[in-house]
């Protein structure tokens, strides 16, 4: 009996396990529609926006400040609508974004190399580990006097401070990513024959990716802040930039212009943050790190 029913048993086994697995997985489908999700995350933000505009309008009506110091919301938006039709406006955005991106990419490269080196090399960690964290506490604006002495009023002065602002966060992200790779996964990787570089490529790098992305996100925030501070201090002639624009408009007592430029800066910050957050969220979901 045991011999010639082998196949039947095999097929039965398949069915049995498939049945058990179906039971295991019964509750995984999610029914929420995409639109509903977008709306669910959008309405609190819209509400907050409406609230801010409302308060602003009320303060304006109260006459707390002269209208030419604190203009009404619609006046600011009218100014913004005018500004977007000028070439200078877009050149300013382009300059600032280019500086931000170049600084960020450079900081990311330095942060990655530094982070891996510190995470791997013991003496380096002893020497630099806490220095990197200490560097993070340094307000980036405090670097500008030195940067200007080193590089004069130049692109490099701005780049220097942006990189110094962002690289430590990125390096720290890498270090904590590498430090917290589960030892079990490292052992599994080693058992599969991964060594040195291939262990990094196939286990350490993907396992630390979520922490690295968090580091990049934080690094961008620092880069963006340092950059705008820098653009207020390091003003290069004939080169419009958002920070320069802000200074120039203040000197002309153009409050509506100042506020509309700030809105642009704010929106860019929010968009960049959304990009990083969505990458972060997607990664965490794929890795199974958050299970809502």
């Amino acid at each position: 009996m045991a011999v010639d029913t082998g196949r039947a048993v095999e097929v039965g086994a398949d069915r049995t396990i498939a049945g058990l697995d179906a039971l295991d997985l019964a509750a995984t489908a999610s029914g929420e529609s995409r639109l509903a999700k977008v709306w669910a995350s959008a309405w609190p933000k819209l509400l907050a926006l409406a609230f801010v505009l409302g308060v602003w309008q009320v303060v304006y009506w109260s006459g707390w400040r002269e209208p030419w110091v604190l203009p009404a919301p619609q006046e600011v938006f009218a100014d913004l609508a005018r500004a977007v039709t000028t070439a200078d406006f877009w050149r300013a955005i382009a300059t600032t974004l280019r500086r931000g991106l170049v600084g960020f990419v450079l900081a990311a490269a330095i942060g990655l190399v530094l982070g891996v080196a510190v995470a791997r090399v013991r003496p380096l960690r002893a020497a630099l580990g806490s220095a990197i964290t200490a560097l993070q506490t340094m307000p980036s604006i405090a670097w500008f006097p030195l940067a200007i002495l080193l590089f004069q009023i130049s692109e490099n002065a701005i780049l220097f401070v942006v990189v110094l602002g962002a690289a430590p966060s990125i390096a720290n992200g890498v270090i904590s990513g590498v430090d917290y790779v589960p030892p079990l996964l490292l052992r599994a990787g080693r058992n599969f024959g991964a060594r040195g570089l291939s262990l990094y490529r196939y286990v350490v790098a993907p396992a630390s990716l979520p922490a690295i992305v968090s580091g990049l996100k934080q690094g961008w925030a620092f880069a963006w802040r340092s950059l705008l501070a820098g653009e207020l201090l390091v003003i290069i002639a004939q080169r419009p930039a958002l920070g320069v624009r802000l200074q120039g408009l203040r000197e002309q007592n153009d409050a509506a212009g100042v506020i509309s430029t700030m809105i642009v800066i704010f929106v860019i910050g929010v968009l960049a943050d959304a990009v990083f957050s969505s990458a972060d969220r997607r990664l965490r979901r794929a890795w199974g790190l958050d299970q809502a």
Partner: peptide, 15 residues
Amino acid sequence: RPGLMFQEPALFPWL
């Protein structure tokens, strides 16, 4: 080197 199946699944979550 022998193949080891660990006490926990030790699967790579990114794959």
